[in-house]
Amino acid sequence: MTWQWFNRLTSPKSYFDITDWLLPPMLIISVILMMVGTYLGLYDSPIDYQQGNTVRIMYIHVPTATASMFGYVVMAIAAAVGYIWRIKMAHMAALSIAPVGAAMTFLALVTGAIWGKPTWGTWWVWDARLTTELILFFLYVGFMALHSAFEDRELGDRAAGVLAMVGVVNVPIIHYSVYWWNTLHQKSSISVAGKASMPVEMLTPLLLMMFAIILFCTAISMYRIRNEILDRERDKNWIKERLSA
């Protein structure tokens, strides 16, 4: 049963059939939830007693940072699956996630800098959390650059795939950086196991934005996989039939 699903997902043709009806609702739901989360975050949530209104930056900063790390793990797993079992779809998935992940890393870094100025008094500091997140950005960009450096696409898949796999060690370092080193960055405010250190009026928009942004990134990555398939499988009959209809 599970393998059947896996086989269907790794077949480009059924991937098109599935995403035909799956992608529009994913995109629409994620945008609606982002709008609700933004309304709550910007307007209908309390200010922080120390930070005032700047705490509202959290509803963008934390979800994009989470998405940047989550995206990298998924990209590395896809690259590993593609590398080990030589599954083309997995390589296409890794390549499609990279720009989305890079965009999320960029957003996390920029909103972090904008948040840092009024609260820490500086846009940037070379501490462990900020530096490892910057390395994450370079890993994403490096992955894309390395891939495009190869004339032979399948060779590029494998070479960039190795970089993606090796780079995954950076993700737990980002996560634990605030515990291992003395940094300016605060520790996690929410965790899967523990109790959140914020009122529910803040937690609701935060979790909402987190879910919405990850859903949006997933949908965009899946959309990009379709582009990648069109590009790589252009001589296949089913694509010709599909586009000629």
């Binding site: 910007l42 005032g52 700047t54 509202r56 930056i57 920029v110 909103t111 904008i114 948040w115 009024p118």
Partner: peptide, 16 residues
């Protein structure tokens, strides 16, 4: 105005 932090809050959401 966001209590004087309008620039920081709005630019974050704008860039996003």
């Amino acid at each position: 105005h966001m209590g004087g932090h309008g620039f920081y809050v709005w630019s974050s959401y704008g860039i996003a």
